[in-house]
Simulated scan of single mutants.
Amino acid sequence: MSFKNILIITLLVLPFTGFAQVVPPPMPPPPPPGLPIDGFSGFLIALGIIYGVKKKYKDSSS
């Protein structure tokens, strides 16, 4: 193989390797501000309120 053939192959292959690379997907939009409250968080908050009310009534009766 001569230098000319190697040069032609190199000049043809290099651009194709650049086009063949996978482009990363675009960034997803940021989440909305604030803390989302799902069912479990709501359950924990309700459980804390119930516990606090029970403790308050128990302490005030004695």
Rank of each mutant, 00 (worst) to 15 (best):
G42M: 12
P31F: 02
S62P: 09
L35V: 14
K56Y: 14
G48F: 02
P28D: 07
T10F: 07
P33Y: 10
D59N: 11
K4I: 06
P28I: 14
I49F: 10
L35T: 14
A20I: 09
K56Q: 06
M27L: 14
L44R: 10
P24M: 04
P29T: 11
F19V: 10
K54N: 05
L7D: 00
M27G: 04
G48M: 07
L12M: 11
L47W: 10
L47I: 06
L14W: 10
P28W: 09
I6K: 12
L47D: 14
K55M: 00
F3G: 05
F40H: 05
I6C: 02
P24C: 05
A46H: 02
P15N: 04
F16W: 08
S62Y: 09
P30K: 03
M1A: 12
P28Y: 09
F43R: 08
P15D: 05
Y57S: 05
V53C: 11
P36G: 00
I45S: 03
L12Q: 06
P30F: 02
G39R: 06
P24D: 07
F3D: 09
D59C: 07
G34H: 09
I37R: 08
L12K: 04
M1D: 08
L7I: 04
M1S: 11
L11S: 12
P15K: 03
G52Y: 07
P25W: 03
M1T: 04
Q21C: 10
P33M: 14
Y51F: 14
T10P: 01
K4F: 05
N5C: 01
V53K: 10
K54V: 15
V23S: 09
M1W: 08
I45E: 01
P26S: 12
V53P: 07
V53E: 09
I9S: 01
F16A: 14
V13I: 12
P15C: 08
P25N: 04
Q21H: 08
L47A: 15
G39L: 03
T17Q: 00
I6A: 09
S62E: 14
F40C: 02
F3Q: 13
P15Y: 01
I37K: 05
I37V: 15
I37E: 04
F3T: 08
D59T: 10
S2Q: 07
I6Q: 09
S2R: 02
V23F: 12
N5R: 07
V53M: 13
I6S: 03
P29C: 04
G42N: 11
F3Y: 08
L14Q: 04
G34Q: 04
K4S: 11
G34S: 12
I9A: 04
K54D: 03
V22M: 12
A20S: 12
F40Y: 12
P26C: 06
T10W: 07
P32Q: 01
K4M: 03
F3K: 05
L35K: 13
K56I: 02
M27H: 06
P31K: 08
P36C: 02
T10Y: 07
P33I: 13
L7W: 01
D38H: 05
T17R: 00
I9L: 11
P25T: 07
I37C: 10
F43H: 06
P15G: 01
N5K: 07
P36N: 01
V23Q: 13
